[in-house]
Every structure is written in structure tokens, then in C-alpha cells.
Write a protein that binds this DNA or RNA. Structure first.
Lengths: 229, 229
DNA sequence: AAAAAAAATTGACGCGCGTTAAAGAAGATA
DNA sequence: TATCTTCTTTAACGCGCGTCAATTTTTTTT
């Protein structure tokens, strides 16, 4: 994939949900101060505490956002996939990054300059609304996350994660392809990898699911939902 | 306190951080579709799952936002004090409330209509930016919350809460007045009330703090910070 | 001021889940 | 294909914190 000129950057931007509806000129302006960067698997994009330069938009690959704990473990806050952005919130405040970003795969990311994003928002109410909606979505996701880690047992966490994934698939065949390693998933659900493994084994034994590596087949949707709550 | 006419509503709005800088006309327009409501202590403002009508702005009293769990317990997500707002995020999405709101004191709240808020944002980029900043702040708060409940022990939770409160006070005398009952604080920190009580007792015994009802005197700031991490 | 209700404290107990350790499976490297 | 690394699974163990229960303190009601 080659992104060597401004034109293609603007084109890519125009395909992002956040930017549809912007005029060609507006896109060009944003594209002008947008730079592309590439990171290899496991490479750190930024550390908690650094100063943000703008909004990141994942084009290819996957970025993991996590809060490192002093004891070495970490809490995975978000897995960012292509088409999604991160670092917006910090752009509207003047604060350092509250978490670290690390690539889980070789990735290509666009970095949209802070100031030109703010300028674009000033001139385009529709963009402002989209940004507001986007932040609101993140806010709701975070609240589900808190709900998850605050008042659910390990089995409930796993079951409700799987149930959520089922809802996201369009088909009626409940096969879930985990988007990340089980380690990472465990961290996202706030579980030790061993616990996740045990819960999956247990759900398999009760005939609710069937696990084949990173593919999980849901056999009994009703009992899955029941386990989730 | 009487708020019976539009003029005073506009005036109150103009004093809210979110609305400073708006023109008189803009304020009047928002005020026109803003209504005041009062709730008594323990009264429910809205339940999880209901449809939102707009943004709530607390004038007097205190509102508790919490996610009820099926087992009857609840996770307190936020305590909203005078001058603060809630329900913005849901205004920019078309989703039901993800949590319930309940007054912990007799309260007076303004309800700003969804549509006129959106209109005001369209016409005023500064307001848009303020809303973005406001949502970003909430987002960061939620992330600290997750950090709190995901990778801290009970003593760390309490200590970091107290340390945070210290930072919020302007003075160098570290006396913290809990803004709510210890039960509610415990729920916010994701602790059983008994655990909170034990931790406070323990911190007292080590000479780090001194507890007098809802007033907490911090005696050893350094060791408090150390306990927090 | 007395009675009732709610909140806070204290102790005993048990369970869920993290920790440690070790072995097996899957992917990467050459 | 063989070796090394990383990921996943399984088992044994222990601790932190929630649960239950009883008492004391504080707040509210009359």
C-alpha cells in the first residue's frame, strides 16, 4: 500500500466515517497537515505521559491502548482496528496521554495535526457533531467496560463478551473469530489468561460453545445469554 | 431560590463554564427550551433504558449516576455536583440512558432540550469545542476509574482517592470533606462498605490520616502517595 | 428526649481468581 | 524438518476482599 501523495491521503480520509460529507477543499486542508507513519508489531507508538500531537487514524494493522501498572502488568483499554481513531480526547484537552499505545501487528497510521483538526471543526458543524458522537460512543464503551470489571464474575465477563460479538456479526451462524490473542483478550476482560482458558473450557464442557484456536462456535445462544447475566 | 422566568434561566446558564462566551441571544434561545425540575432526596431522576430528552445541569443538590446490577447492588459511575452536567453523551447518540440517576439530596436541575443544544452547537464553534473538551474530561475520568478498579488493591483505591482530593483543594491543609456517605464512596471505589471502613481504620492506625466522621485529615501526605502506588 | 431507622464498625469465614509452576501446542526462524 | 520462541492449557495453592452476623454510632422521626 502506497500513500506517498497528498491526494491519496485526502482520499483515504474521505472514506473514514468521521470525515464523510466534508468538501474536497476541507479534506485537502486536513490532508496537508496529516502525516503517515508505520510501526512494526510490538513497537511502541507512544508512552503514557508523552504530549499528543493530534488524532491517530488506523489504516492498516492494529493498535493496543493500555494503562501500564507499576507492577508490570497492564490494563488494555481498547483495541483499535482499521478505520478507527484514537487520541482524539487528548487533542481537546491540553494533557499528556493517559495511556500507552503499542502495535500488535505491523500497522499504518495517519496522524492528523491537532490544530488543523480544531480548525476544521470550527468551520464545519457537521464534523463537530460527528466528533461529539464519536467521543460519546467511546464514553459508552468505557462505561460498559466499567460495568464489566466492576460487577461481573469471570464467566459473566466472557459470556457477555461473546454475546456482544454475536450481536456484531450479521449472520445467524454464531462463529466468532477472536481479533487478538487470548492473552490480549484476557487483559481486556481483566482476567488472568489462565482464568480465561478455564472459563472457555468450562463453557465448552457445558456444550454452550466449541473452541477451535481463535475461532469460537456458539452452540447454545440462549444459555450463553443466560450465563452473561 | 426562585427560577420562575426565562431571564433568570439564561443568567444561570451564562454562569456555567460550558456556556460562557455565548451571546445574550444565544443564551435566550437555549433558555427558551430549558425547563427546571426539582427532585427530593432519594428520588429517581431517570432509569437505565429510558429515552433522554436533553442535557441535565445541576444547580443545587447532588445526583448520583449508577449502573444497577441484577443482583441488586450497583456501581456508582459518577457523583454530579452543582455546576456540573450529565446526560450529554446520550444526547449526541440516539440511545437510551445506559445508567440510572438518583438524587442523593434535594436538588434543582435544569434540563436543556436536545435539539436546541444541537442547534446552538451548529451555530457556535466555541460551544462545540467546549462540549468536546467536556466529554474528553469525562472520558479521562472514566479511564482513571477503570484504572482504579482494574489494577489497584483496596488500600490503593482509597489512598489514590484521598490523594486526588488533596490535589483538588487549594489550601495546604489537607482536610478532606467527603461529598457523600461512606456507603456511596465505597460503591464509587468498588469496595464493600466494610472494606472501606477497614482500610480507613488501617490508614488511621499507621498515622497517615485521621478520620472524624465525614472529615478526613491527612497527616502524612508522602506516605499517602506512597500507599496509592 | 425517646424511639426508630440508617449508617458505620468489627470479627469470623469462605470463595473466586490471581499466582506459580510445568507441560503441551502452535507459530516463527533458519 | 528441526529448533526456538511464544501462546495456551492444566493443576495446586493462597490471599484479598466480599459475605454474613452482631454491635455501636449517628441521624431522623415523633
Amino acid at each position: 500500500m502506497m500513500l506517498e501523495n497528498r491526494h491519496s491521503v485526502a482520499e483515504i480520509l474521505s472514506r473514514q466515517p468521521l470525515f464523510v460529507g466534508l468538501s474536497e477543499a476541507e479534506l485537502q486542508q486536513i490532508a496537508q497537515t496529516t502525516r503517515e507513519y508505520r510501526v512494526q508489531k510490538n513497537e511502541i507508538v507512544f508512552q503514557k505521559g508523552e504530549s499528543p500531537q493530534g488524532m491517530h487514524l488506523v489504516i492498516m494493522g492494529q493498535i493496543k491502548l493500555a494503562i501500564p501498572s507499576p507492577q508490570g502488568s497492564e490494563k488494555v483499554m481498547h483495541i483499535v482496528n482499521p478505520g478507527q481513531s484514537f487520541g482524539e480526547a487528548v487533542t481537546f484537552l491540553d494533557k499528556p496521554y493517559p495511556l500507552s499505545a503499542q502495535a500488535t501487528q505491523d500497522s499504518i497510521v495517519l496522524l492528523i495535526d491537532k490544530q488543523s483538526l480544531l480548525d476544521a471543526i470550527d468551520e464545519n458543524p457537521r464534523l463537530a457533531r460527528k466528533m461529539l458522537a464519536s467521543l460519546s460512543v467511546r464514553l459508552h464503551e468505557l462505561m460498559s467496560d466499567i460495568e464489566n470489571c466492576a460487577l461481573r464474575t469471570s464467566a459473566q465477563k466472557v459470556a457477555s463478551y461473546l454475546a456482544q460479538e454475536c450481536r456484531n456479526t450479521a449472520t445467524d451462524i454464531w462463529t466468532i473469530e477472536l481479533g487478538s490473542s487470548k492473552q490480549t483478550l484476557a487483559a481486556r476482560l481483566n482476567l488472568a489468561p489462565e482464568t480465561l482458558s478455564r472459563v472457555l473450557g468450562q463453557l465448552s464442557k457445558s456444550g454452550i460453545i466449541e473452541v477451535h484456536g481463535r475461532k469460537i462456535q456458539v452452540l447454545d445462544r440462549a444459555r450463553l445469554d443466560e450465563t452473561a447475566r
